[in-house]
């Protein structure tokens, strides 16, 4: 049976993981490769590395980092952040990333999704959507949730699928950082109206939130950051918990 996936997300700046990620058994807590390898050992199913570097120099560092991750990590990983055009995708896949995640650039230029799918296949193309529930509907946001758009979540996700997205990574801005659970209702609507996998993001605070997002939210995968980085929840204990709840996970 296809397992539900648990995906830690690491923010990267200038080639290092950002802020306070603390694993005392690692020599360098800031090294994304060591942290990623540790998550792989703990049983993470995939990893996401988000480049939040702004500078051009930092970008080059990120491509070098992707090359190092690909050499050392034996589970799939997605990279995102700062992908504007096909050339960026080519560079990152060439360095060994399994998938790329596009967000603002796809909203600004939806053809980018089609181009990625046509050139590299749908399976490499994750479309990330940041959306906020406001005034009775889910509005998509640009630039890490700073700029609202005319786009609505469900229609945009559908269009992304039609253009060739291989997965949708949906972050609820209402739930992100609040640690009260995922946006299960919206996730369920997404999952039931699309036929590509849905990754849930935003709101993980307890192990029960993960079982809820897989049963009520019908998500195929769940992504979280701080709750894993600060060891509030261990991946092994989370999987044991989900298994006891009758949810298929890779042990």
């Amino acid at each position: 049976m296809l397992a539900k996936r648990i995906i830690p997300c690491l923010d990267i700046k200038d080639g290092q993981t950002v802020k306070g990620i603390n694993f005392e058994n690692l020599r360098s807590a800031g090294d994304p490769v060591e942290l990623g390898a540790e998550y792989s050992r703990q049983g993470a199913d995939e990893l996401v590395f988000l480049d939040i570097t702004a500078s051009h120099e930092g970008r080059k560092t990120f491509v070098d980092l992707v090359r190092r991750i690909a050499r050392h990590i034996n589970i799939p990983f997605t990279v995102g952040g700062g992908i504007h055009e096909l050339r960026d995708v080519d560079k990152l896949l060439g360095a060994g990333a399994d998938k790329v995640s596009v967000n603002s650039a796809a909203l600004r230029n939806p053809d980018l999704i089609s181009e990625i799918a046509q050139n590299f296949g749908s399976q490499v193309c994750t479309v990330a959507i940041d959306a906020k529930f406001d005034g009775g509907e889910w509005t998509c946001y640009l630039n890490g949730g700073r700029i609202p758009t005319e786009r609505k979540l469900f229609e945009w996700a559908k269009e992304a699928q039609e253009r060739g997205a291989g997965e949708i990574l949906f972050t609820s801005m209402n739930h992100d950082g609040v640690k009260q659970g995922f946006a299960n209702e919206a996730l369920r609507t997404l999952s039931e109206s699309l036929n590509i996998p849905i990754i849930a993001s935003g709101g993980a605070g307890a192990m029960s939130h993960f079982s809820d997002v897989f049963t009520e939210g019908k998500a195929d995968a769940a992504l979280a950051a701080s709750i894993f980085h600060f060891k509030e929840i261990g991946i092994q204990e989370l999987k044991k918990y989900l298994c006891e709840k009758g949810i298929a996970v890779r042990k």
Partner: peptide, 8 residues
């Protein structure tokens, strides 16, 4: 879902 994506 298609593609079949993930661990089986």
């Amino acid at each position: 879902k298609v593609p079949h994506m993930g661990w089986n």
